[in-house]
């Protein structure tokens, strides 16, 4: 500080969001017996894990990372997940959708558009119940989708894991009520107030490493239902479908069967930020799972989706 300079207590919006998210993460650790942080290897859950590291530094995370693995993830995602968990010295718990299918609690969809996206809910709820987690931290943001705009920071779920949007607890100031009955749990969203741009700016400011999938690369894709899906053992081109090798990247990372690529030459964070700033489509516009109906997200959330 220079001499005679008047101290500044101005806090820019990104630091305010960071402070709020850290506050929520600490409230979660304090109010619940056994929380878990839902970690998918996507950028939002990566940012959330990074914030958790800051919230409890120099101690380790007081909760494990929980990944619901559809078995249809990109290899890069799984590799990143394992490395990042090790770097954080965090416990990693993996729930396999395949296990639910084998048990018969989840039934695989059929046909070319089959996706295990909806099945994740079954496995997630089974995991929470088996491990007796009473709070699951999610990276959902209210700007992502209209049903998510109605979500609380501390979102109550009944003993069937269901969300009742018409009967949510009011949240005032920064007081969060995590009281619950046995068998109920909470979903907690520390990034509620962040936008896609905030997440990218924060990743840049904090120099958080990301899976390569987010950066432009050359890849074989198949055009399906207006989206470009990466070809793989799981996504095999059907007769009549157009296959091309293009320079692409992914704006969101989820199941290979429903995460579309976008044409892009953004191979570093600065270029991605420019691309996000001029994007004319919402982030989830590349997600086939949201396009199934106008209320696809609302319906899935009520059932207990992320």
């Amino acid at each position: 500080m220079e001499d005679n300079q008047i101290p500044s207590y101005r806090v820019n919006h990104l630091r305010q969001l960071e402070s709020e998210a850290i506050y929520i993460l600490r409230e979660t650790a304090a109010q619940f017996e056994k929380p878990a942080l839902l970690f998918s290897g996507g950028k939002d859950s990566i940012v959330m894990a990074h914030l958790a590291r800051k919230a409890f530094f120099p101690a380790k995370l007081p909760f494990p990372l929980l990944h619901v693995d559809t078995g249809h993830n990109f290899e890069e995602t799984i590799q990143y997940r394992d490395n990042y968990a090790e770097e954080l010295r965090a416990d990693l718990v993996v729930g396999l959708v395949q296990d639910s299918i084998d048990k018969g609690t989840a039934i695989e969809e059929k046909g070319a558009n089959a996706s295990r996206n909806a099945l994740q809910t079954v496995t997630l709820l089974e995991c929470l119940e088996e491990q007796q987690y009473d709070a699951a931290l999610g990276g959902g943001r209210r700007d992502e989708e209209k049903a998510r705009a109605k979500e609380r920071f501390f979102s109550h779920r009944d003993d069937f894991g269901q969300w009742d949007p018409k009967n949510q607890r009011p949240e005032l100031w920064n007081i969060f009520n995590g009281r619950k009955h046995h068998g109920e749990h909470f979903r907690i969203f520390p990034l509620s107030n962040w936008t896609e741009m905030d997440v990218w700016q924060y990743i840049k400011a904090e120099e958080i490493p990301l899976p390569n999938l987010y950066f432009a690369h050359t890849r074989e894709v198949v055009h399906r239902n207006g989206a470009m899906l990466a070809t793989s053992e799981i996504v095999q081109p059907q007769p009549g479908e157009k296959v091309e090798t293009l320079q692409v990247r992914f704006r969101t990372i989820g199941d290979m069967t429903c995460t579309g690529a976008v044409l892009s030459d953004a191979d570093d964070l600065d270029k991605i930020i420019q691309e996000v700033a001029s994007a004319r489509e919402t982030e989830r516009g590349t997600r086939a799972d949201d396009k199934r109906s106008e209320t696809a997200m609302e319906d899935r959330k009520k059932e207990g989706y992320f």
Partner: peptide, 26 residues
């Protein structure tokens, strides 16, 4: 508009949060 009931009834049920930014403020 957010939830299905709101679109059907043309009302807002609950507090919804919206985000926007200009070069000056978020």
């Amino acid at each position: 508009d957010g939830l299905r009931a709101e679109r059907e009834q043309g009302i807002t049920i609950d507090v919804a949060y919206r985000y926007f930014a200009t070069p000056k403020r978020k």
